[in-house]
Design a protein around this nucleic acid. Structure first.
Lengths: 196, 196
DNA sequence: CAGGAAATTGCTAGTCACTAGCTTTTGACA
DNA sequence: TGTCAAAAGCTAGTGACTAGCAATTTCCTG
């Protein structure tokens, strides 16, 4: 079913992304030019921009939030909202292949060190809150856009964010150590944020 | 005490910012070039960059989080953390002069409509969490860096963020309507996030 | 007030991300 | 094999931002 064209396109996309990641890791994000990446991937600079709208986008993925939403919807109806998020995250992480896991870690490392990328990831947080708010309201039988569901979604995302000290949306790639902290954070939130 | 030099500098800075804001509002952020701003403010483009490192920074302020931290520290010792945040915000808003308030609203409107700016504001959220976590731990007599304090800080910031549907850190400028929602959000958080 | 140090500004020339429009190549399919 | 459309390359820009140098302005001291 996959035509030659599609296969080639996928290969080009992968080549660009791989060389970009490698160069970012070797020389840093800012010091790597799009031309260098294009050269390494043996495409023209214009082709680079046809595949990725900006240099940053090479390391960003699109539909991660959506995956989480699906996983939350898949939880049994009786489960409480925060608990459902927690279980859903476990499912998502359990489904990660070793390669995917390793790739996530590399990306996470990049996010960690490059401010511009961190900013972009944060930006997706608003969307994450929107999505989560929708799912929470849905599960609780509340109208979409319900304020209390929104606040809970915000608190959940914020709690998740606090786990990775220097930023990075957990749903988008976390190290194993972070994963455990993530669980603890959501558990705390579930218990009404006890201190100490 | 203010030398001629300092006064001139302040005036130049204000001129650049005012003209930039005006042009952004009139023509949009992307459509406004630094050269235009420089022309309008009657300085050279290089001078623009001496005052503001990037075009975005013209609309961004620096120490807003610090103000909030001070206000939280000023709350009486017995008050619970979230409550302290709530009271502190009231104090901060009460202290705003009418002009400052109006300026904040203009900025808020810009953040609302310009994705790049939103991203930058979000970026400051991590710092906000760090600061808040410190203050919360301090007030609760916990060691700095305490995990539960961090999670609470994250949840608080997230809850505040959820108030403004399309982003924008509340502490940095909110419309009056937002202010009321902000209070409600923190109250909900305080009550352990009841739904409905 | 003179006159030099220090700060501030402007200018020049550049790099790099990104866009628009056009031509050339290459895979698809009759 | 010939034709059509997708994809890649090329050219020429724009605009944010930097580095370094020269001119100007404010400040300070004698």
């Amino acid at each position: 079913m996959t035509s030659l064209r599609e296969r080639k396109k996928a290969k080009t996309r992968a080549a660009i992304r791989d060389h970009a990641m490698r160069l970012f890791e070797e020389q840093g994000f800012a010091a790597t030019t799009v031309d260098q990446i294009a050269d390494a991937a043996e495409v023209s600079p214009s082709t680079f921009f046809r595949y990725f709208p900006t240099k940053e986008d090479v390391v960003l993925i699109d539909d991660v939030d959506a995956v989480l939403v699906v996983a939350i919807r898949a939880q049994p109806a009786g489960v409480e909202p925060i608990q459902a998020i927690l279980l859903a995250m476990r499912d998502v992480f359990a489904d990660l292949s070793p390669e995917a896991w390793e790739f996530e870690q590399r990306r996470q490392r990049l996010f960690h060190s490059v401010p511009e990328l961190r900013a972009r990831v944060m930006h997706q947080m608003t969307d994450a809150i929107d999505l989560l708010a929708g799912v929470i309201a849905e599960r609780a039988g509340l109208p979409p856009g319900d304020f209390s569901a929104r606040v809970m979604a915000g608190a959940a995302v914020g709690a998740m964010l606090s786990v990775v000290p220097s930023g990075g949306l957990p749903a988008e790639g976390v190290t194993p150590a972070d994963h455990e902290r993530l669980e603890r954070a959501l558990t705390l939130l579930q218990q009404g944020l006890p201190l100490g």
